[in-house]
Design a protein around this nucleic acid. Structure first.
Lengths: 231, 231
DNA sequence: AAGCATTCTGACCGAATGGTCAGGAAGTGG
DNA sequence: CCACTTCCTGACCATTCGGTCAGAATGCTT
């Protein structure tokens, strides 16, 4: 983006890490910088389209240094995917038939929306991986994630049996929530272009979350267990 | 994927176009083959990640021939995007306040779903372009598409004013429909992995379409103008 | 200051990239 | 049969790719 890296200047180039700061603080900062840069570049161009050169430039380091830290392009990519899966798993606490459907679904939508908001690059990285046929995530999709979905689906079905919501297909419902929330990360460019915004504000995100919650809950005929007939 | 192209065999390699078939029939077939192959490769790997070599191999032609037909990688890509925009525009007939909201919204969901189904590679190509920041489609998004969305949004608002549906934000509603339908093309790998299917059948697609229509229409409180209080 | 381990990077490598071009192959009209 | 145009492609080019490595720079311990 900025200048080419053909400038021979070596010392004091980035304004930081001047003198020795001992310990592994530089290391940690560099790693963080590389991971952030790589997430951006991989998300934008996909695995094949991303180049270590571009990642290195965005991280403000020589290419060799990126390889020194990360070993290989593939290793760097896998590490990013794993980091994203961890974030994903972090918000997937268990639910039970005894929980309130309205509360659970709203929390589901909200937390997924916040994941897209807090880690847009990671969300896009994940999307690019799936779009390309999920060469690195096949196993995860057909295993861990599948089990998670099926477990939730069973709970949804039981709620339907108890008359707490309409008997909709729970898997399609989960996909609906995923797609609707994921959209605001993956298609951010489109959303901004069409709405004429520069960025989505916190208020926008809150409004969208409310909209999605209302439409989806109403659409599935969710009746709150706490008997709140009004509203 | 298959064999490398280092086999020196020249004649009668592809089983077709043997003798002269006059006119531009070969040309047309080759162009079609190239466009189809390119759509797959670009969709899978993005603009940067796609290689002319891979496209040529999938089309069963030498790389030089691809460039002979298409001029350049960029030109080929733009041509694919334009073709996809044409398909898109084809299903965007105008609507009016006088139309029935339920009918229009269902037709909207259904036609968008069919677009994802009939042209999954094109849908993914579009997704990859947006994911990468829409470097080639910025103008389209901020112009043509934006106008189309705003026009529809006005109609939705008027429907709400007339009490034909809830006063939901029409733009978020359009995004909801787009994302939910687009999902089955873009995240096909994930959908198949989780549901344990090899492919989505026509029946699956019909079921999903019905599900989406039901949930979204109900979620927006759409009341059919033809007074169908039952169901 | 010396010794040693760690951290870093410029130079380099073979392979692959998009693109060019001279010239072969093939169809067409005389 | 010969010209002439159009269609096609192998060989080649500069550039960039991911990755290696020797050795410089730096930090830590004594």
């Amino acid at each position: 983006m900025t200048g080419p890296m053909t400038e021979g200047s070596a010392p004091a180039e980035r304004g930081a890490r001047e003198q020795g700061e001992a310990n592994g603080v530089t290391r940690r900062r560099n790693e963080r910088e590389i991971l952030a840069a790589a997430e951006r570049v991989f998300a934008r161009h996909g695995y094949r389209g991303a180049s270590l050169q571009a990642i290195a430039e965005q991280a403000g380091l020589p290419k060799s240094n990126v390889l020194y830290y990360m070993g290989s392009k593939r290793g760097l990519y896998v590490r990013l995917l794993e980091r994203m899966m961890e974030r994903w798993n972090a918000l997937l606490d268990d639910i039970s038939v005894e929980d309130d459907p309205a509360e659970v679904l709203e929390a589901f939508i909200r937390s997924k929306m916040q994941l897209s908001r807090r880690h847009p690059e990671g969300s896009r990285l994940f999307a690019a991986e799936i779009l390309g046929g999920a060469p690195f995530l096949q196993e995860y999709l057909r295993g861990e994630l599948r089990d998670w979905v099926l477990a939730r689906a069973r709970v949804f079905e039981q709620w339907a049996e108890r008359g707490l919501m309409d008997p909709v297909d729970p898997v399609w419902l989960i996909f609906l929530i995923w797609s609707a929330t994921q959209h605001y990360a993956d298609f951010e460019t489109q959303v901004l272009g069409i709405t004429g915004r520069d960025a989505l504000s916190d208020a926008d995100v809150e409004e969208i979350t409310t909209f999605l919650t209302r439409v989806i809950l109403k659409g599935c005929g969710v009746r709150s267990r706490d008997a709140d007939p009004a509203r």
